[in-house]
Design a protein around this nucleic acid. Structure first.
Length: 476
DNA sequence: TGAAATGTTGGGGCG
DNA sequence: ACGCCCCAACATTTC
């Protein structure tokens, strides 16, 4: 007797290898019906941002092509997930629906309801962990509570065994007798209507092939020097795997094993620790779901944030007058990505120098990053603002000049993204307002005209931030 | 996964 | 020879 079809509901796991849900479907022996459901309203407040949508479009197209290479295809449907699944079950005669879990609050709520409804329908609904090294509900400290400090978290997690990769799929996936209809990808309107995305195509190759290539490149060229060069935005010292990881084009399990197979050196250890921060972020979001909009440390609910649309706009568009900040914000705008060191610098600048709410920064990153990830974004911003888990104390104010000098020593990063400073010599590029007039003139820079003057004075802004923090402490 | 202020030490110039 | 000052270099504390 032939097995019934199995629906594999692909979400942010757009890959064929190390695919626990797909592996389970294949193990049943039944025809496999791969589907992706477009239901942005079910993501709650954090529906895909513009850059994420661009990536998703490319990734879905690539995944469909990959499936077709295996004699299969990706069925697309728009609308509420449960209704779409029920319709697909009717159309295909499927008795089983499988998927890999997501751990964001809105997904958990939706998926739990979907699973219960399908089980009530008599469908075998199953979910798997394909997104994390360890499921968040499987990690707790000695008193049974979630970890809130990274170092003990990672120490604990490092002692756990990482599962083996799921078996690779066969060259040909068993197809249903009749394919259910698919809606055209274009009907989801994921690509921007105005073409701000042209540079994205030069920087990224969304999809499993691009993810695999990025990992291979990193292992070949960068992992050994990672400890030294990861903080240098002017070099290619990081993996740039974040968007691939976010969309599940590659899994942390694959990355973990591939890196460990290649090297056990210090660079590998430091890199895997960064994968650990991603795990920690998901762990925290799972246990503290309110932190997407509320500070984990409740006293920060009273913090006297400023309200200044002009300054927010200057920050967003990379016109603060601080070259390292502006370079970062423009890298983000043109490529959909920003080097992590620079993310910390621009976040510190928004939250401390401008004293604008971290949530404004989180929302901007959410809309503009191709790797926008609710867990990592939330952790990163709360860390920067000093109101989150294991956060930098609020009085840690990054000096944007020193950070520039230290991590972009030749000014190459600034020159790449702030062309109006391209001819500035390295010794003045991070503080052009302190350069002698002759140097500015020779570089063709007229402050306030070709490039903005600093929108705040560093020392005054730092002192004001510390004063606001002292006020908060006093009130508490 | 800071920066700045403050404190300490020690070498060298100099009377 | 000695004390004094200056200051760089480094360490510690504070924000």
């Amino acid at each position: 007797m032939a097995s019934a079809p199995v629906i594999v509901w692909f979400r942010q796991d757009l890959r064929l290898r190390d695919q626990p849900a797909l592996a389970h479907a294949l193990a049943t022996g039944g025809p496999v019906v791969p589907v992706h459901l477009w239901s942005p309203e079910e993501e709650g407040e954090w529906t895909h941002g513009a850059a994420s949508r661009w990536w998703l479009h490319q990734s879905l197209a690539g995944f469909d092509a990959a499936l077709r290479g295996h004699g299969s295809r990706l069925v697309l449907r728009a609308g509420p997930a449960l209704a779409s699944l029920r319709r697909l079950i009717r159309e295909t005669g499927a008795k089983t629906v499988v998927w890999n879990r997501r751990y964001e609050p809105a997904s958990i709520a939706r998926d739990t309801a979907v699973k219960q409804a399908l089980l009530d329908d008599g469908i075998d609904a199953r979910s798997f962990n394909g997104a994390l090294l360890h499921a968040p509900n499987a990690v707790a400290n000695q008193s049974g509570r979630p970890f809130q400090v990274f170092t003990p978290f990672w120490k604990h997690v490092s002692a756990l065994r990482v599962r083996e990769e799921a078996p690779a799929p066969p060259p040909s996936l068993p197809a249903p007798a009749r394919w259910p209809a698919s809606e055209p990808l274009e009907s989801f309107h994921l690509k921007p209507s105005i073409p701000w995305d042209h540079a994205f195509y030069e920087h990224w190759q969304p999809g499993e092939v691009g993810a695999t290539a990025a990992l291979a490149r990193f292992i070949r060229e960068a992992v050994d020097g990672y400890a030294r060069e990861r903080d240098r935005p002017d070099l290619r010292g990081t993996s740039r795997l974040s968007p691939h990881l976010h969309f599940g084009e590659i899994s942390p399990v694959q990355i973990f094993h591939a890196v460990q197979r290649a090297t056990r050196g210090h660079g590998a250890e430091v890199f895997l620790k960064e994968v650990g921060w991603r795990e920690f972020a998901h762990h925290l979001l799972f246990h503290f779901p309110h932190t997407t909009t509320e500070p984990l440390r409740p006293e920060f609910g009273r913090f006297p944030w400023a309200d200044d649309a002009t300054r927010l706009r200057a920050w967003q568009r990379g016109r603060t007058g601080y070259p390292i900040v502006d370079a970062g914000m423009r890298e983000l705008w043109t490529t959909g990505w920003m080097h992590n060191r620079v993310r910390m610098i621009v976040a510190s600048f928004l939250v401390k120098h401008l004293r604008l709410p971290w949530l404004e920064g989180a929302r901007w990153f959410w809309d503009t990053l191709v790797d926008a990830d609710l867990a990592s974004n939330t952790l990163g911003w709360q860390w920067s603002a000093g109101c989150g888990a294991d956060a930098a104390p609020y009085f840690r104010v990054f000096n944007p000049i020193l950070q520039g000098v230290k991590f972009d020593p030749h000014g190459a990063y600034v020159r790449t993204h702030v062309p109006e400073l391209a001819r500035m010599p390295a010794e003045h590029i991070h503080a052009p307002w302190e350069a002698p007039p002759a140097v500015l003139a020779a570089a063709g820079v007229r402050l306030g005209e070709t490039y903005p003057k600093p929108c705040v004075d560093h020392k005054a802004a730092r002192d004001a931030a510390l004063a606001a923090f002292a006020e908060l402490k006093k009130g508490g």
